[in-house]
Simulated scan of single mutants.
Amino acid sequence: MAHEPLSWNGSQFEVLLDADESRGSIGIFTETVPAPAGPPVHVHHDADEILYLLEGEARVLADGHESNLKTGELAFVPKGAEHTFRVTSKEGGKLLIIVTPAGFEGFFAQVAAKGLKLPEDMERINELAADYNMRNIAPPLSAE
């Protein structure tokens, strides 16, 4: 099934496999991120996540551990772990993101359709995030 790419919060998202297509087992999407940028620190209460860097460089914070990824490297984030990333390469970056079980990949279409923006709409974004067993808990990583 073809999925329309969408934009939200400065990033471009393209769902490659969703919950319906995988019978709920896995969600896969790409996120193209300008530099320097990344999501708020957040937690998925029910899903493990893999961040695979397709292009660029990124700093990843997961479960209290920080690492620097280069193209072709990945980070695993177990469910329940606080995490975020920040693309650090000047040209931006692109990640392949895998969540299991599936479901979270639908979040971006919801917030984009409602025109919600970070940080000003954080309360409403977290209300929607709860439907995806996710919560934003702190601002994005700084540029340091």
Rank of each mutant, 00 (worst) to 15 (best):
G106I: 00
L69S: 09
E91N: 12
A143N: 15
G115D: 13
E105W: 03
E14W: 00
K90W: 01
K114E: 15
A2D: 12
W8R: 05
Q12H: 04
M134K: 11
L17W: 00
A62I: 03
R124G: 05
L6C: 11
V99C: 08
A113I: 11
E21F: 09
V87T: 08
S67V: 09
D20F: 06
E105M: 06
D20P: 08
E82D: 02
P119R: 13
V60R: 09
I137A: 13
V87K: 06
S89A: 12
P39G: 10
L116Q: 12
I125S: 13
S22H: 10
F76L: 01
L95E: 07
E105A: 10
A47I: 00
P5E: 05
L53I: 01
D18F: 02
A37R: 12
G64D: 08
N133S: 15
T84S: 11
S22F: 04
H44M: 03
R135W: 03
D46G: 03
G38M: 05
A112E: 14
L16C: 04
N133T: 07
F108E: 12
A2P: 14
L6F: 06
S142A: 15
W8D: 08
D20H: 15
Y52D: 09
G80F: 02
A47M: 02
A129R: 11
V99G: 08
A62K: 07
